[in-house]
Write a protein that binds this DNA or RNA. Structure first.
Length: 638
RNA sequence: GCCGACGUAGCUCAGCUGGUAGAGCACUUCACUCGUAAUGAAGGGGUCCCCGGUUCGAGUCCGGGCGUCGGCUCCA
């Protein structure tokens, strides 16, 4: 047989040759350092036979940053962890231990609960294994053989995995530890130069909360100690841009026990909030939306009609009132539909686009709350588009276009995901075939790449979600575009068609920022608090050199209106006040003293670059950076 | 809600095995009126998250609650 090497050369090998055989054929050093073979682009265990005619690449310890090479290192590290835990905790049951982004984990059922102090002991045991050295061997066995083995070892999770696994069964052994595993693995433990355990958490078996909760141990490993140090430094850096930290530092908002999950927005935070609101109003007006305002509190009847009561009652804030039960609205859609349904509409009114950014309250599980990204008060830039079947695709396309505009405005790259019918869906499969197809068609027409999430749709319809990643690598849903063929009918929305018949409209639900709270959280991390000029809470800080310059500084501030300008009159040195402006991440600092005049201003940009310019030129620059603000046409919509 | 951890001044944090609480920054006052990332001095500020228990005595130990953090689950 033959394989093709990266340089294009063909390598002749005996039939059934493995990746390791190929490496040996090239050179002993390569064989020694090999960690993985990539065959036709796919990671493959070195011990497995190669496929005839395929291009291969041998990955070695030098490919220390390659994602596949790191994954195999970490997967093997997870097995070392399991071996150590089994030795230290007799009676422990092992579940699964895969590599993940940035590291690995292994799930265990401990006979007695363990605390974080146990991690150090376990880590030491793994270090001992690394000092001793381990070799991995692979054996392909029958399902019965594997089941018998794990039954004998009293490993019920492994037995279950054997019974439900697809494809051939393989085992990997290092030392006296054998694990059910598809691989691939390292040849031996020598490449693992840096190993650390990073955390402990509960995790349900197979991710299902009806199952037993296991103990998950997280760790990470690298090919060099320097890489681990760099990894830890990156985490430290990420913590510095965490919006929860910056929010308090920059005086944007704070959270308090008195209302868990509900931020107090400070004046500076509200500047950003209102800047987003201005964009929302301005763009909505341009794109044919109309603003509505619907009640915050509703009789539960409306949620029973919409279908939310059954699924989300537990997460609603309820207000008993005599015979009736009211609830603070957790979403706008039923209210908008109630408004639409208040009269018989004409097809000539469609598409009708109702927009409202009302505060919504959802009683999220205490353990799920998280800074601004998971809150109990959610302010969506919400809208509901009532339209005919024929209008759907254009409307979805319009939302995608709008979303692209907004995310470009902030230099954000969102990932698109298409979520389809869930198990508890309302409506028929035919309806879902149609609504899912409509979303897909719009995505394709817009030329967007997207990930498919089967079963993740809302109970009333499929959705396109925009996702962003926070400073610590966690993914959050931002904008959402949903197509609903269920609620309008349940709530009684009707319009008279051109055919003189009554029809039920489709409704596109869309929130493009998603929630303003979450969006500002992500924005804060995206910019590390150094917001672009047009949304910066304070845009220009004037530092009068001495007391005698204060009056002139205020006059200058007035001439810079309507930009957000502050004069720093604090009793500090110029150096200290510059420092404060930098810490507050203010875009421009103007030092004003004897040497300055309207013809000659000393302007410092955030970060330190200094220029001298006339006031007219400076104003012109600011106007370029924030045209809407400078337009001074206090737009009718805002 | 579940697993693990944490909760001390406005912020960041120290406080050994139980003996009545500290630093830096911030704040206030005074002096200095200053030229591009920290002027100096003095001062004020704490039901040590809450409730109960053990103890002569609890920030410290134990139990319960609340909140926060790392995960899991959930996310209309």
């Amino acid at each position: 047989m033959k394989v093709v090497l990266p340089d294009g050369k063909q390598l002749e090998l005996p039939e059934g040759a493995t990746g390791l055989d190929a490496a040996r054929a090239i050179g002993p050093k390569l064989a020694e350092q090999a960690v993985l073979v990539r065959s036709n682009g796919h990671a493959r265990d070195l011990r497995l036979p190669l496929e005839d005619g395929r291009p291969i690449q041998i990955l070695t310890t030098r490919d220390k940053d390659d994602p596949d090479a790191l994954a195999v290192l970490r997967h093997s590290s997870a097995h070392l962890l399991a071996e150590a835990v089994r030795r230290l905790y007799p009676g422990v049951k092992i579940a699964i231990g895969p590599p993940i982004e940035g590291g690995f984990y292994y799930d265990f059922e401990f006979p007695e609960p363990i605390g974080e102090d146990a991690l150090e002991r376990i880590e030491q045991e793994v270090r001992r294994e690394l000092t001793e050295g381990r070799e991995w061997t692979r054996s392909d066995v029958s399902r019965d053989e594997a089941r018998a083995r794990f039954l004998a070892e009293r490993e019920p999770y492994k037995v279950e995995l054997v019974d439900t696994a697809e494809g051939p069964i393989s085992l990997y052994t290092q030392g006296d530890f054998t694990d059910l595993c598809r691989g691939p693995h390292l040849q031996n433990s020598r490449p693992i130069k840096a190993f650390t355990l990073t955390g402990l958490a509960g995790a349900y078996w197979r991710g299902d909360e009806r199952n037993k909760q296991l103990t998950r141990i997280y760790g990470t490993a690298f090919y060099t100690q320097e890489d681990l140090d760099a990894h830890l430094a990156r985490l430290e850096e990420a913590r510095r841009r965490d919006h929860r930290r910056l929010g308090v530092q920059l005086d944007l908002f704070h959270l308090d026990d008195i209302s868990p999950g509900s931020p107090f927005w400070h004046p500076k935070g509200m500047v950003i909030w209102n800047a987003l609101e201005d964009v929302r109003r301005r763009e909505n007006a341009k794109r044919g939306y109309v603003e509505v305002r619907t009640p915050l509190i509703y009789d539960r009847v409306i949620w029973e009609r919409s279908g939310h009561w059954e699924k989300f009652r537990e997460h609603m804030f309820l207000i008993p009132e005599g015979e009736r039960t009211f609830s603070i609205k957790p979403m706008n859609c039923p209210g908008h539909m109630w408004l639409f349904a208040s009269t018989l509409r004409s097809y000539r009114e469609l598409p009708l686009r109702y927009a409202e950014a009302a505060p919504l309250h959802r009683n999220e599980l205490a353990g799920a709350l998280h800074g601004l990204t998971r809150v109990r008060i959610v302010t969506q830039d919400d809208a509901h588009i009532f339209c005919t079947r024929e209008q759907i695709e254009d409307e979805i396309f319009g939302c995608l276009d709008y979303a692209k505009f907004l995310y470009d405005l902030f230099e954000l790259e969102a990932r698109f995901e298409l979520s389809t019918r869930p198990d508890n869906k309302l409506g028929t499969d035919e309806e879902w075939d149609f609504t899912e197809g409509a979303l897909q068609a719009a995505l394709d027409r817009r030329g967007l790449d997207y990930q498919l999430n089967p079963g993740d749709g809302a109970f009333y319809g499929p959705k396109i979600d925009l996702h962003m990643t926070d400073s610590l690598g966690r993914s959050w849903q931002m904008g959402t575009i949903q197509l609903d063929a269920q609620q309008p009918g349940r709530i009684g929305c009707r319009y008279m068609g051109a055919d003189n018949e009554e029809h039920t409209p489709y409704v596109v639900h869309r929130a493009l920022f998603g929630s303003l709270e979450r969006f500002i959280g992500i924005l804060t991390e995206h910019y590390a608090g150094a917001f672009p000029f047009w949304i910066a809470p304070v845009q220009v800080r004037i530092v009068p050199v001495g007391e005698s310059h204060r009056e002139a500084a205020h006059a200058l501030a007035a001439r810079l209106a309507p930009f957000r300008v502050e004069v720093d009159e604090s009793d500090e040195t110029v150096g200290k006040r510059i420092r404060n402006a930098e810490i507050e991440k203010i875009p421009f600092t103007v030092v004003y003293g004897d040497a300055e005049s309207d013809e000659s201003l000393a302007i410092r940009e955030r970060g330190g670059a200094q220029t001298t310019r006339a006031l007219v030129d400076f104003r012109a620059q600011l106007a370029t950076l924030s045209p809407w603000q400078a337009g001074a046409e206090p737009s009718l919509t805002s």
